[in-house]
Design a protein around this nucleic acid. Sequence first.
DNA 1: TCAATCCGTATC
DNA 2: ATACGGATTGAC
Length: 657
Amino acid sequence: MTKSDRTPAERQPIARVCVDVPLAHLDRPFDYLISAADDEAAQPGVRVKVRFAGQAVGGFLLERAESSPHGGKLAYLDKVVSAERVLDPEVAQLARAVADRYAGNLSDVLRLAVPPRHARVESEAVPEAEGVAGGVAPTPAAGADGGGWADYPAGAAFLRALGEGRPVRAVWSAMPGEDWPARIAELAAATVRAGRGVIVVVADARDLERLDRAMSATLGEGMHVALNAAAGPSERYRRFLAASRHRVPVVVGTRAAMFAPVAKLGLAVIWDDGDDLHAEPRAPYPHAREVLLTRAQLADCAALVCGYARTGEAQLLLETGWAREIAAERDMLRSRTPRIQPTGDDGQLARDPGAVTARLPSLAWQAARQALRADLPVLVQVPRRGYLPSVACAECRTPARCPRCSGSLELAGARAVPTCRWCGRAAADYACPACGGRRLRASVTGARRTAEELGRAFPGAPVRTSGRDEILATVPGEAAVVVATPGAEPMAAGGYGAVLLLDTWALLTRSELRAAEETMRRWLNAAALARPDGQVIVVADGSLAAVQALLRWDPGWFAARELAERRELRFPPAVRVASLTGRPEAVAEMLELARLPEGAEVLGPVPADDEQERMLVRVSRGRAAELAHALHEAAAVRSAKKAALPVRVQVDPADLF
DNA sequence: TCAATCCGTATC
DNA sequence: ATACGGATTGAC
């Protein structure tokens, strides 16, 4: 058929299309005619090709209509790329809500939500094992009896509610040593038995592997798929299609799975929502927790935000009454929690010469030695490289502090003058108050060097490292020193005999808003790997709130404190903040154009990389939607007049200050 | 009065 | 990017 003799489809000849153009002023559907030949394939959710402003562009067919409000001539769809309906209508609605919340474009969100097409995968036969033919939802294999949820007073009720298909919402604080993948799998099984679907999002590939195995064990094979980037484009699309074609009721994955199509969603779960991997780095920078909560709201389904730690955002869900708390009672918790003790960084170094070179306080050294003697592994958590190293006296290792304000000093380079991280004053003539020494050294030591030093401190024990380059998933339950950076701690069979949290001062003095919360999260995640009869030693001042919370294993208390402080300071999540980054003139133009809501505070500028600056706009939570709308409109005006200099808009930026 | 050209704007 | 409409210009 040639172009000229195309005729419109008889019924609903209009296709409403989201074109793949990342311009704010074009962020609305455009209507096209559907030819009679495309009538059957042109269903909502399919990919299409259209001519848009003279160019061939891709897009998604959002809906069909009988007529168009558009005054001018309509063009025909160039073609329906494939009859596969990859954009679920519920996901389309979610994507619109996410775009609105983050002042972004629908097309940008759809690019995150629907993986790239892989034509061969689309046409291949469905393997028998993948699911029951005919789209009949399979039922889970094992009959769950409530499993470990009985240990949490509100947990059993939550599980029961899922089985009855009720839209319950909770924040769960897992006990140390908790087999969280198994617990989540039990929730999934209950939800599936009620005839509903489940999405679970975790931060990284290692957590996903554990969850994947737990799902297989609890639900049986063929009930779930795991979506992650590591799988490669064709396998990724294959698994996406399994979900999209509703062959499986449960989808687990890293953050891209937050948009996975699932039929009759009954439960959305995010594990360890404080992990910064949950923040999408591509525009409009949505956070998995917020996307899943929006989704639960739209689908009127159950939601669970969980981890060993608790974020300020999760605490806010509890304090506003949106979610209920699931936590163990004090006695139960005490029976599962290892012994946790703080120890000072200086003064009480162990006498043993090996321990001295490894810079181990004596309490830490004793705990480690005791565990190794009992043939148990020891976990040593050390900071990752890339943090500005703190500085200490080269002679006596007393931490170097600013003579004026007691802030920590930093060395920008090997020959640089030490400078205070708090007040910015240079301390050129620094002399150690303890010994008078004038030489300084960076006191953060990388994982490899720490491993070498620990090897000497504990001769005979094998030393293993787990970090950025090589991450170990598990280690055997026998004597070994395991040095790991935060987030890369392997599980030990039966748990660690001792967990040492070293160089914590470097974590706590980081300047970001979330430094304390993030430190707490990393400690709890590492300490959770200890045996209940094991020991945890944190090298930090016992009077710090984060240390107190760790000693008592009380992430709720700490989160409430953090949230109260952020209310006081008017920081997120108590308020909504958006950041505008770009060249100063572009940012200024944007702010001039934006009709900001009443009471909006404009803060900045803060210098950014590359001749750019950053401005912050702060509003109350009640004005959040208005703020996003105003910023999107301003971006639309700028994109309509082809403003040359880009401005990056981030609502709830992951890195504030 | 009409075509050629320029500029701004919408893009179905 | 491109296509179109309206305004502007210059030649008859």
